[in-house]
Design a protein around this nucleic acid. Sequence first.
DNA 1: AGAACCGCCTGCTTGC
DNA 2: TGCAAGCAGGCGGTTC
Length: 257
Amino acid sequence: MPELPEVETLCRQLKKKICDKRILNTETFDSKLAEIKNMRGKRVVAVKRAGKTIAIDLDDGNSIVIHLRMTGRLLWQKISTMPKYSRWKMAFADGYIFLVDPRRFATVRVVRRKENGADREIFGDFELTELLKLHGGRKTKIKTLMMDQSVVKGIGNIYACEILYRAGIHPERIVATLTAAQWRKIFSQAKNVLKKAIAKRGTSISDWRDLYGRKGENQHQLKVYGQEGKKCAICGGTICRIKLSGRGTYLCPGCQK
DNA sequence: AGAACCGCCTGCTTGC
DNA sequence: TGCAAGCAGGCGGTTC
């Protein structure tokens, strides 16, 4: 599922591919997306990521805001042949971008653009002291807090597991009981893990592909996610899987207390 | 207010 | 082999 590194990968590729280009046409193939107007004639002026959402800024002051949710993909093709599970497409002079999504969870909206800063962005205006002031006393579990997009944007299930493993903290740890040192560890590992995943063009554990249909390379860096039953690289213990508010969660019981 | 739960979806896996 | 049930999960909305 696309999280911050995957969406960042797509945005960088989109920027190179469609910036300053005119949209010749758009077309919807899914009744759930019937509301989207035709963006014919609009020129792309910027492509920006905010958390897990992609914003394609247009020259008329509107933005096409895309959220891929679980199984959504954006795919560049030179030919107009529709890939399986296509739900929407944009046509450019030199090719097409298809929104491909078998589960139909992905959303596309056209909104009036408002200048919003990099608030709650882990590589933006994010500040640990501010987060602690707002949420430091919460009774919820740390993994749940990390995945709450209103707290910090971009972290999903895979990276939450990987960050907490590297920080040596149990996903069910209650937020209010974390020490200052542990908070710093989580924050620095979050930046570290996400930065490395961006460099590897994302994690293709199931169906993530980039704009050109290629897999990422970060799945080879995973230490706990999907590694149930395997040996922990640090302590030699066995990686286990638990359910945390309905979501599959991977950890090393030896390293994460 | 804050935490937990539900529904949206459909391909894939599991079990009989 | 075939078919049904169960599973996966981000996020907005609802409930407790």
